[in-house]
Structure formats: structure tokens, C-alpha cells
Write a protein that binds this DNA or RNA. Structure first.
Lengths: 251, 251
DNA sequence: TTTGAGCCTTGACCTAGATCAAACAATGTC
DNA sequence: GACATTGTTTGATCTAGGTCAAGGCTCAAA
């Protein structure tokens, strides 16, 4: 997810019209006639925190993007081991054109609003409106980069580095929305439970808890409550994360 | 990489003309005039086993696809820890349109021939020839699926399951090319050193070696030399890999 | 004001895989 | 034929993170 923030966000949704966020700025290249067919099939869906949106293997006849809230993509093995493979924040795209079955569980981690399109008309529109496909390619390439950074994290980082990385990733994505650094220190509210973090990081929730405590004891982060985190020195956090330099954020 | 083989291969390269493999079947939808501009900038490059094609961070002014041989994408941390994030077999695409710097080390694992295009003209052609972009989107979505399966492997599988998975993945990709199963048993030549396997799997090379020995002792695989593997019962291997059922291969 | 359900923390212990070390096999070079 | 070199195997030991278990905190329902 980390490099996504590095690319300038011009128009983030593949959607249009009256969406609550990024209203009207959605697609600079669309004229109204091109958008008409999309408008017709667009609809919103709301989900409560914890609700499963689709189960892996289920038929999925829509695509869409997150408007508000957070969703996750998760894979499960027969014996119950779970690995998160996607973390969807506002503006992220869900679903795969050209496939009618969900490959992963999609779960709303917080209360969630999605902007959806029926898949069939969306696919047709992709054929007639090339730049939507181009935009989707761009977004997919970003996701692939994020997945590859994630693979480095899963395969080679220590538990401590994993936690530091996750906090940095969330802080970075957050900051790109609300730019809330008051004098060098960055503030984040973790939108995930310890368990969800463990599924993201390929750890147990106990290890997540212990490493968060360790980072707190070492002054890398300051915690109020369970989820509200202040990062006094972001550079220091990035060092703990084992990322080379800034990961494309500062600078 | 695994699900890639599941989607029917219609025309695999984004390339055309006189490529050694899949010659002429490359792009059913292209007419000659559309391909002309690509032909102009197309060229082949050969690399020896072990040679680094591009270093992460280097300028990369071409895109291309593997014609013969195998290449890897690898990320490296400052202290030298390495994680493979891409395994490129013949027909796989290399490079990212819209970015001029390599994000990963690209290394030829075997002797390698690539079919390359200068990036600038390729990008221009993507704008004028939409279905090339569409094909690229399809390939990128496949890669993203593969990356996500890989994440499950890295985050949740045991060393034994990782090895079994890797052998299955390679066998599957191999089989889709040469369909070499003689009476239920499948034969593979591992195109990777133990070290490369360890970089793929997020393990040490010693653990890779030990687990291969263990699978051999248990009769899951039969080895001649170091690299030549016979799989007497592919289903059994898949069970060891912890994949749900067949992973989209048999059936 | 209890009770209970989620979510989180911490401790004690254990094990899968890492690390360190030695040696072997195949290949090429002088 | 001696000898590096590269890839691999195997053994002995160590440790990061998993597992099992007990509580603690918070909020909401009864």
C-alpha cells in the first residue's frame, strides 16, 4: 500500500457524479455523455463494521470503490489460517472486471460505504471508454507494487519491523488525506483490531500486542487508549520499519 | 503465479511479428498497420545466467517480455536481506509503463532472451491502440492475483508447505507449456538454485534443502541430480502444499 | 451494579526455522 | 592431477515468535 501515496492523486475514483468525496473532480477527462451510462447503474451500499461483503467463491456481479470506511481482502486456508491480502481505504477499487467470482473474502472492518456498478455495464463501458481502463491499469499497477512491498514485509521483516511498517503505512495513507502533522509529530488512529493487524502482518495477535508495547516502551510511539497513536519522530519509525530511507514519502 | 495458468492463454505476448515463440498467434486483434509502430521499436536482448538486467533505482527506458529463460524481480533491504517478488517465465511482461525507474532488481536466473520495446513509443501506442492496454490490464490483474497467493504462502505456510507449493507452481506453469504428464506423474526441472528458492519463499537456503530432503524421504517427490524432480502423485503434493483442493489446475 | 462480550495485555513455555559450521559433489582452471 | 569455485547437504545449537493460559479494561445490556 505504501507506494500508492507517492503517485499524485489526480482523480481517484472510477465513478462520477454525486459521490460524497472527491465530488466532480472524479474524472477530468470524462464528458457528461460518456458518464451517462455509468450513472445509470451506479448505486451505493452501506455495511456495518464486521460485516462480510462477499465470501470467497461467491458470485460477485458488481465492481466498485470504497467511499468511506475500510475493508479488507482475506484468504483463508481449510484449517482456518488467515492472511490479509488487501487493505482497502477510501478511493480503492474492489472487484475484478472479467471475473464473476470473488477470489477473497471482502470484509468491512469499520462502517463502510461503497459506490458500486453492476459488472456487465461497467465492462461494456470499459470497452467504449478507453481511459477508464487506462486508469484502472494505473491503479492495478499501484496495487501490484504495494503487494510486492507487502511480500518483502511478510517474507523478511522481523515482528518489530512489521509493526513499525504497518503503522508507517497507515500514517502515510492517512496523511495523504488529512495532512495532520503538527510540528514533526504524526498522529494516527489505527483502523484495525490487533487481530486484523496480525492477519495483515502474518503474526499472531499476541506478538502484535507485545511489539506494540515494545515500541511504546522505546518511545517510538505514544499510545492513548488502544488505537490512538502519536509518532513523535516519523524518521525514527521508518528506521524501525527497516525501509530504505523514506519509502517515497518525505522528500 | 499459480492462477495465471488457469486463465486460458490466447495470445500471451504483447509483441508481434517474428518472435521465436507463439509466433503469429501473438495478437489476434491486431492488424498489420497497428503493429507497424511497435515493429519499428522492437528489439531483442540476450542475457547470461546470473546477469543483472537492471538494478533497482536505475533508469529503465524499455518494457518487454520474456521470450526464453527465466528472470526474477527481487527487493533488497540495506542489510542484505532479499525477497523475490516476481518470477518471470516466458511470455511474462517486464517493466511498468508510466514509470522510468526500476523498482526492483531484475536478474536473469537462466540464460535469457527478452523482446523489448522502447518505453516512449510503447506508451504512445497504448494510447492509440486500446486493446493493448486492455491486455496489459488483464495480465496485471493476473499478476496481482498471483502476488496475493504468494502473500498467503509467505505469511502463513510452513516451510514444508512452502516448498511443496513452489514445486506445484513451477510444475503447473511448466505443464501449461509442455503438458508432460505421463500417466499421472509429473516431471519438472527446477529452474532455480536452492538460494533463489529461499528468496522466493522467505526461508534460508538450508531450510529449503532440508525440506526438499524431507519431501523426498516421504516419497512426495523423487529427485535425480539436484534439480530434476518427478512427482508421482500431484494431488498428494497439493495436499502437502496446503492449497484448497486443486488450485484451479486439475478439474 | 452486575454480567457479559470484545478486545487487549502479559507471563511461561515450546518449537519451527535460523544460524553457525563442516563437508561433499560437480565443474572448471591452471 | 591439484585446486578453487559454486551449489548443495547435513549436523548441532540457538532464538524469535508461536502457543497456552490468565487477567484487565470498556462499554452495553439486563
Amino acid at each position: 500500500m505504501s507506494k500508492t501515496a507517492a503517485t499524485p492523486v489526480k482523480f481517484t475514483h472510477i465513478q462520477c457524479g454525486d459521490c460524497p468525496i472527491r465530488h466532480r473532480a472524479v474524472c477530468a477527462r470524462c464528458d457528461d455523455s460518456e458518464l451517462a451510462s455509468l450513472e445509470e447503474t451506479k448505486y451505493y451500499r452501506s455495511f456495518e463494521a464486521g460485516q462480510t461483503i462477499v465470501w470467497s467463491g461467491d458470485r460477485m456481479d458488481f465492481v466498485g470503490s470504497v467511499v468511506t470506511g475500510i475493508a479488507t481482502l482475506t484468504q483463508t486456508m481449510e484449517d482456518g489460517r488467515r492472511q490479509m491480502v488487501g487493505l482497502l481505504l477510501p478511493s480503492d477499487f474492489v472487484g475484478r472486471p472479467g471475473r464473476d467470482t470473488a477470489a477473497y473474502d471482502v470484509v468491512a472492518t469499520t462502517d463502510l460505504v461503497m459506490c458500486c456498478f453492476r459488472k456487465k455495464p461497467f465492462e461494456e463501458m470499459m470497452l467504449t471508454t478507453p481511459h477508464v481502463g487506462q486508469r484502472l491499469l494505473e491503479m492495478t499497477l499501484d496495487e501490484l507494487d504495494a503487494a510486492r512491498e507487502w511480500m518483502l514485509l511478510l517474507g523478511r521483516k522481523t515482528a518489530r519491523e512489521k509493526i513499525a511498517s504497518l503503522i508507517a503505512i497507515i500514517a502515510r495513507r492517512d496523511a495523504s488525506l488529512k495532512m495532520a502533522d503538527s510540528g514533526g509529530s504524526v498522529v494516527v488512529d489505527l483502523p484495525l483490531t490487533r487481530e486484523a493487524m496480525s492477519e495483515y502482518l502474518g503474526l499472531t495477535l499476541e506478538t502484535v500486542s507485545r511489539q506494540i508495547s515494545a515500541l511504546r516502551k522505546d518511545g517510538i510511539i505514544v499510545i492513548e487508549g488502544k488505537r490512538h497513536i502519536t509518532i513523535p519522530d516519523f524518521e525514527r519509525l521508518l528506521e524501525e520499519a527497516g525501509d530504505d530511507s523514506d519509502g517515497g514519502f518525505l522528500v
